[in-house]
Simulated scan of single mutants.
Amino acid sequence: MFSRITAEGAIWADGTPEAVDALVLATGYRLAFPYLTGSGALDPDGRPLHRGGIATAVPRLGFAGMEFQRSFSSKTLRGVGRDAGYVLGRLSPRR
């Protein structure tokens, strides 16, 4: 797991930086992103700032699996795949 993100990519726990084109976080059942604190990706309560799973304040950052992310089923196995596909399509460098 990475320890923080930067404008260029991610910093791994051992301090090694790695450039990344996009970062998608599969949130699971709890919204907890301590590694995004101070990045501008979260509101004051620690919730992601996003529109449809695409971060509104951090380029190339996406989320998947959040309740009502794009639909009623977003937080379920039935809906997360559609949302993940949407996010990946929006973050794809081919776009």
Rank of each mutant, 00 (worst) to 15 (best):
M1F: 15
F2D: 05
S3A: 12
S3M: 14
R4Y: 07
I5P: 01
T6D: 03
T6V: 13
T6G: 07
A7C: 10
A7T: 15
G9L: 15
G9T: 15
A10F: 15
A10G: 03
I11E: 06
I11F: 04
I11K: 07
I11T: 13
I11W: 03
W12N: 01
W12V: 04
A13E: 08
A13K: 14
D14E: 11
G15N: 07
G15I: 15
P17V: 05
A19L: 07
V20L: 08
A22G: 10
L23M: 04
V24W: 02
V24Q: 02
L25T: 02
L25P: 00
L25G: 00
L25D: 00
A26W: 10
A26C: 11
A26D: 08
T27N: 08
Y29P: 01
R30M: 04
L31K: 03
L31F: 02
L31Y: 03
F33D: 00
Y35G: 02
L36E: 00
L36W: 03
L36K: 00
T37L: 12
T37Y: 05
T37Q: 13
S39T: 15
G40C: 09
A41S: 03
A41F: 05
D43A: 05
D43V: 09
P44T: 13
D45T: 08
D45V: 12
D45G: 07
G46F: 05
R47A: 06
R47I: 14
L49V: 09
L49S: 08
H50Q: 11
R51K: 11
R51Q: 12
G52V: 02
G53Q: 02
G53Y: 02
I54A: 01
I54N: 00
A55Q: 00
A55H: 01
A55V: 00
T56L: 06
T56D: 04
T56M: 06
A57T: 15
A57H: 14
P59Q: 13
P59W: 13
P59E: 13
R60Y: 15
L61G: 01
L61F: 10
G62Q: 05
G62T: 07
G62P: 01
G62S: 08
F63H: 02
F63S: 00
F63E: 02
A64K: 03
M66Y: 06
M66D: 01
M66W: 07
F68P: 01
F68Q: 11
Q69A: 08
Q69K: 13
R70W: 02
S71I: 11
S71P: 10
S71D: 04
F72K: 06
F72H: 09
S73P: 01
S73I: 12
S73Y: 15
S74A: 09
S74D: 05
K75Y: 10
T76M: 09
L77H: 12
L77C: 06
R78Q: 06
G79K: 14
G79Q: 13
R82K: 14
R82T: 10
R82V: 15
R82L: 08
D83H: 04
D83T: 06
D83L: 02
A84F: 14
A84P: 01
G85S: 06
G85H: 14
Y86M: 08
Y86V: 10
Y86E: 04
L88M: 09
L88N: 04
R90M: 15
R90F: 09
R90D: 08
R90G: 10
L91F: 10
L91V: 14
S92L: 14
S92W: 15
S92V: 10
P93C: 09
R94M: 12
R94K: 06
R95A: 10
R95Y: 07
